[in-house]
């Protein structure tokens, strides 16, 4: 615990100018669910803490079939979990949010915070990657856009420059015949950090055989959340067969570059990537073929890998 000066921004402009003034000595907080823990541990010792939690314009959620989903950076993880449009159109994201910490923390934690904390194990990140989220960044020079898959540069590190703030995430509208599923593997059934997490989003051509679109997001198996690119490319534009899915699962395993820690060895994590990728693809494919899965069931998958 170190002393800091607490600053509160009421507008985006004000926040950017505070960040410009204090540079690397400042840290942005919103829900503070990461900050308070790290500060108490003495890991983060900023001289200035800039609270952006009261900038109302960053709280908006909007969805349209044409533009997709827009999430202000301050949208709570609890909102991701419970918002009806998110649950029905981006169900893997809602389910991932449901697996995030406990309800009290989900009420405080923000989606922007989860993204900017850039933990390889961030619970919403594999699903956001799999839904192809784009990041809107505001800064002294104006706005710029970065794909989420390009946003992370290392554990806890992002492309954000001094004075920049993540303000919005945009998820393109889902294609027809899409299924998505997130599976989190963790020792405990709730309130636990992922040993690994896999989110798959698959869309089929009208005929229901050929893969039109596929994204697989992997959590906690590399220095940042990543896409399983070689697994994805195996299926894109091809007729989906059980053999191909197994190959994709093996390819995803090769895409992963995990480390070992208190939650599991590198080898175990790598092995589990194949198992969970296979399971998410199997179920997501089933959903894409018109067999919906109740959200409550998806939530169970997200919280426990046991089935």
């Amino acid at each position: 615990m170190a002393r800091f000066e607490y600053l509160e921004a009421r507008t985006l402009r004000q926040a950017i100018s505070l960040l410009q003034r204090h540079g690397d000595e400042a840290r942005i907080v919103a829900g503070s669910t990461d900050f308070l823990v790290r500060w108490r541990q003495g890991v983060w010792q900023p001289k200035y803490v800039v609270n952006i939690g009261r900038i109302a314009s960053l709280r908006r959620i909007s969805y349209s079939r044409r533009l997709g989903l827009r999430l202000g950076a301050l949208v709570s993880v609890r909102d991701l979990e419970t918002h009806p449009q998110i649950q029905s159109n981006y169900s893997a994201l809602s389910a991932a949010a449901a697996s995030f910490a406990g309800v009290q923390v989900r009420n405080l934690a923000t989606v922007g915070g989860n993204v900017c904390n850039a933990s390889p194990a961030g619970d919403t990140l594999p699903a956001l990657l799999a839904f192809d989220a784009q990041c809107k960044i505001a800064g002294p020079e104006g706005d710029r856009w970065v794909a989420l898959s390009e946003f992370f540069t290392g554990p806890g590190r992002t492309v954000l420059q001094t004075g920049e703030i993540l303000t919005e995430l945009r998820l393109p509208p889902p294609l027809p015949n899409t299924g998505s599923l997130y599976i989190k593997h963790s020792p405990r059934g709730a309130m636990d950090i992922a040993t690994l997490g896999v989110a798959s989003v698959i869309s089929l051509e009208g005929s229901g055989r050929v893969c039109r679109n596929l994204r697989i997001g992997l959590g906690a198996v590399a220095p940042t959340p990543i896409r399983a690119s070689s697994a994805e490319s195996l299926l894109w534009g091809r007729e989906v067969t059980p053999e191909l899915i197994t190959s994709a699962a093996q390819a995803a395993k090769a895409d992963a570059k995990p480390i070992g820690d208190v939650r599991g060895s590198a080898e175990h994590r790598q092995d589990m990537v194949a198992v969970l990728t296979q399971r998410t693809l199997d179920r997501a494919l089933d959903m894409a073929r018109g067999n919906p899965m109740a959200f409550e069931m998806q939530r169970q998958f997200a919280i426990q890998a046991a089935f």
Binding site: R188, A190, I193, V262
Partner: peptide
């Protein structure tokens, strides 16, 4: 001790 916190020392929860 490598896991001195309730986030890393995993006691079961009601859901478990």
């Amino acid at each position: 001790v490598l896991n001195p916190s309730l986030a890393t020392y995993l006691m079961p929860l009601a859901v478990d």
